[in-house]
Design a protein around this nucleic acid. Structure first.
Lengths: 357, 357
DNA sequence: TGTTAGCACTCAGGAACAATGAGTGCTAAA
DNA sequence: TTTAGCACTCATTGTTCCTGAGTGCTAACA
């Protein structure tokens, strides 16, 4: 990009003004900007060059200029100045996590929802489950004469429960028996390996009891599947409707965002710490009039990570939102690694406690 | 309403045709209907009368007629024939609940989501918490050296858990101590009475231990609040965007639906088993171009109940959707009352077990 | 060689007007 | 009470004209 300083300044000014006002920017308006201070005619010459290079667009002949999606790209990569958050902004983000005693499983969903309203965007939040996550232990709690609660605790700190209705009277003895049995077969086992077939073999080992414990094993299998799948939330659909440029294709956009597979495929393309996908850069047609800002958070080594993304109009205040999102992701990672107890890496204790396997 | 048979037939035909096609219905088209069989001129005379009575509207002079919101009301109350569901339809609804081992807490959310996609509407689903719901018991499970899971079981069968991070090493002794203590103060206690102040007095009773148990008591308090609040879900926003007549005010409509208080106030006006609120009948401006079909489900006496509502355009296939919704609500109630174990009405057993209070 | 003033040009948006046709309201006859 | 006939209405579509913001180009200027 062999462009002189002034042309870059003009591209930057057009982009920022358009982001702010939503109106095409004309040469006369730019001539008043203190950093530019040349006549409208000169600016027009420069704009013609920027247009040639594909950095600017013109809604129609007699309108001002707006940045093309490539223009946004140059602005984001080379021109914009992201200032680090000031104390007030940091505390505003911190407040989004303002849950007194955070439950790690709910923190992601709740904070992402708050972030959506804070930014006026939609948010996508996912947790990525490591390959090597294991079952730490299974706990069973009596919850009624014929009801039990199954708790599955995984080595990445995720804890999930499920209520399970059974056909027999739940007694402490039965619970103790099944607790020991289930942990013997499951504790320390890699979660991704707990298939329907494996549960079947566990059922076989239960022998004559297998029939009555079927719902319990089923519940455990479902819990493993849920933990292994990680989480996927989209929040703030309503916010997107406040942008006229997104209303037209809102139905297609929303349908796309609700499809976890499609979105995951799209997000998996972004490998850097923070990535911006501007409008038509996105291979998915549904998103050509939207921008996506993607950031990762990490929860300590080998424990897990996740993705937080903002979805908004192309005309997005990148310079402000990128540092906000990064600080949010960083805080999320920090809070989760504090809350989620790291696996002590020795399942030996438990394996010993439960004997076999 | 002193209207002869033919006029009612015309109103009914206009309503059903308009629901099907979305186009204003003209006199010529109606003259071909086998039940009517009079000339367009006659139909026009009748339409003029129906218009006088406020049952029909005309988008403009040279267009056909569409039902007014009052016209829909008459159609719904007096004209439409709801046929009971056939076997196939019933099994389609049953399939929406197709969760092998349903967790009562998730059944409502999951099935309502499925219902939204089945009907092409948005759904609102709430559970209504009875006044007299009590804490059945609190269970504590070790989930790491400094992490515990708190389980709250309520007399209405609701079971909720929360992960809680503490500042001390979690040992079986501490768990046993706190378990006994907490149940002594909470088991059998009415959930709505567990205020922040009450938790404060529990903390005082803990004496020197109160400081370290603060997060645990906090978690218990939050759990009580959550159980007492019941649940509120809205699903299928995206579906609503497929109706052009709702796109205009979609932002306001969505914002309204996300506001639990407002929606609850609106739904609380409906006291019958199934109620329809047609467009402008709704006092809330955001909903004047939408219709709401509300149905209740019940989970056995004194255990609980809830509301399932469909939100869609005014031009809704009421004759089909009302029986579907009713069957859905009925099935939901049946499934929940099977799954949720009814309170045996004697907390005496537990009170005895935990001594005091 | 880069910058600027001047001016003709372009085109979206809005207003004004006419043509078209679907569907009506009214009247008089059956 | 029903119907045929006919004049009438008005949304829609297309055309034309006007206005003004903003441009592109040219020639003069520094």
């Amino acid at each position: 990009m062999e462009l002189d300083q002034r042309k870059l300044k003009i591209l930057s000014a057009i982009t920022e003004t358009y982001i702010r006002t939503g109106e095409p920017v004309g040469s006369k308006l730019l001539s008043f900007y203190p950093d530019i201070r040349v006549s409208p005619a000169t600016i027009r010459n420069d704009m013609a060059v920027l247009f040639e290079k594909g950095l600017l667009e013109q809604p129609h002949t007699s309108a001002g200029r707006i940045p093309s999606h490539l223009g946004y790209r140059v602005y984001i990569d080379e021109l914009m100045r992201c200032s680090p958050l000031n104390a007030e902004e940091r505390s505003q983000i911190d407040a989004l996590f303002n849950i007194k005693y955070p439950d790690p499983d709910r923190l992601l969903a709740d904070a992402a929802k708050a972030l959506a309203d804070y930014t006026g965007c939609a948010t996508i939040s996912t947790s990525i489950v490591q390959e090597n996550v294991k079952v730490r232990k299974v706990e069973i709690v009596e919850a009624g004469t014929r009801t039990m609660v199954i708790l599955l605790m995984a080595s990445n700190g995720v804890i999930r429960n499920k209520v399970c209705h059974v056909d027999f009277a739940v007694t402490p003895e039965i619970i103790a028996f099944f607790h020991k049995f289930a942990n013997g077969w499951l504790a320390g086992k890699s979660i991704s390996q707990i298939s329907s077939a494996y549960i079947g073999s566990v059922a076989v080992a239960l022998g004559e009891y297998s029939r009555i414990f079927t719902p319990v094993l089923g519940a455990i299998f479902e819990l493993c599947r849920e933990v292994n799948e990680g989480s996927y939330y989209v929040n703030g659909f309503t916010n997107l409707l406040s942008y006229p440029e997104l209303r037209e294709g809102a139905h297609e956009l929303f349908t796309f965002l609700e499809n976890r597979e499609q979105v995951t495929r799209m997000l998996s393309l972004t490998q850097q710490h923070t990535t911006v996908i501007v409008g038509r850069e996105n291979p998915n047609q549904e998103l050509t009039s939207a921008s996506v800002v993607v950031s990762r958070y990490d929860i300590g080594r080998d424990v897990g990570s996740g993705i937080i993304a903002l979805v908004g109009p192309v005309r997005l205040n990148y310079a402000k939102l990128i540092p906000h999102l990064e600080y949010f992701a960083q805080t999320m990672g920090k809070l989760l690694s504090e809350t989620v107890e790291q696996d002590p890496q020795d399942e030996s204790g438990l394996s010993a406690e439960y004997g076999l396997r």
